[in-house]
Structure formats: structure tokens, C-alpha cells
């Protein structure tokens, strides 16, 4: 009985997704990646930054680089407003701040609602295949699960 409970609990955790929107599209990532959400951060710019990097922030003494998801996914940029957030994620043991248009919700997605992205077998688009899975929720709502490791391509350093 206990075993069964533990198993279902574990499944629950695996199935929780954190949903945010960028350019009007709902994207998602596994919830355990997200450590913190910051509104109104004080971003300090750095020289020679690539277009997607907005600078660095101070999270209680830890310096974290901040990436604009719009630029990273090559959407057009917009002004930041009161709904703009920085999601702090752990990627390859490094903390990275990700600027998104809006944080939506945390939701459970059952494994059977997830599909492999059909684009991964196509030679169209930008060929980056950042979307690893697609979830089809009630009411025809579609959510793209991002392969965060791929998006940020953190190089593990020696």
C-alpha cells in the first residue's frame, strides 16, 4: 500500500510542469528546475554581451546571468512590463535567470497527454528543435515542453 502511494507520489512529481508564456505562446519546463521567480529585478549590464544576454543580477549574493527568452527563441523583443518575470532555473548545476513575458501556472500533465514533437523529424523551421514534447490539455489548450538543456546549451567546464 505504502509502496503504491510512494509510486503515485513520485509520478505526480514527474508530471508537474511550470508554464510561462513568451510571445503569446505557452511554454513549459519541469518544475524541479525552477528555484525562484523574481519580479522587477535590477539587471546590471555586461560588456560585449550577445543579444540574448541582458546582464547579471544579484540573487542574495550569488551572481546570475540573465537571458531574454524572446531573444533566445528569436522572437521580436518588446518592452518589459509589470508582468515580465525572471525565472531562476538550475541548468547543469548552474543558475540562470530567464526573462519571460509572463508566468502562468504550475500544472499536472499526465504522460498520456504528451506527444513527441512531430517537427523533430522534419527538415523545416530553424532546425533547433527546442520543443521536445507537446501537451494537449483540456479545452484544446496546447503547451510546448522545452528542452531547456538544449536551449541554453550549458557547456560543462573543466
Amino acid at each position: 500500500m505504502d509502496e503504491l502511494l510512494a509510486k503515485s507520489k513520485q509520478q505526480d512529481e514527474v508530471n508537474k510542469y511550470f508554464i510561462f508564456s513568451v510571445n503569446g505562446i505557452d511554454f513549459s519546463t519541469e518544475i524541479d528546475r525552477v528555484t525562484e521567480i523574481i519580479t522587477k529585478p535590477l539587471i546590471s549590464p555586461v560588456p560585449n554581451a550577445k543579444n540574448f544576454c541582458k546582464g547579471i543580477i544579484n540573487l542574495r549574493g550569488t551572481i546570475i546571468p540573465v537571458i531574454d527568452m524572446r531573444e533566445k527563441l528569436q522572437f521580436s523583443s518588446t518592452e518589459y512590463d509589470e508582468r515580465t518575470c525572471v525565472i531562476v532555473m538550475t541548468i547543469q548545476e548552474q543558475l540562470i535567470g530567464v526573462i519571460v513575458d509572463e508566468v502562468r501556472e504550475v500544472t499536472d500533465i499526465a504522460p498520456e497527454k504528451l506527444f513527441d514533437s512531430p517537427a523533430s523529424s522534419m527538415r523545416s523551421g530553424m532546425g533547433k528543435n527546442y520543443t521536445s514534447k507537446i501537451a494537449n490539455l483540456e479545452g484544446g489548450r496546447v503547451i510546448q515542453i522545452l528542452d531547456i538543456e538544449k536551449v541554453f546549451d550549458v557547456k560543462v567546464q573543466e
Binding site: V46, P47, K50, P65, I67, Q94, L95, I96, F152, Q157
Partner: peptide, 18 residues
């Protein structure tokens, strides 16, 4: 003094001098 985050190297073209 704090070290810069490692990932910043991938975010900038040149940090030489910092």
C-alpha cells in the same frame, strides 16, 4: 570579490580584462 558565473562566458563575445 565574487567570481562571474561561468555561463556568462557563453553569453558574451569577450570578457577579457574583467
Amino acid at each position: 570579490v565574487k567570481t562571474l558565473p561561468k555561463y556568462l562566458e557563453q553569453c558574451t563575445s569577450n570578457l577579457e580584462g574583467i
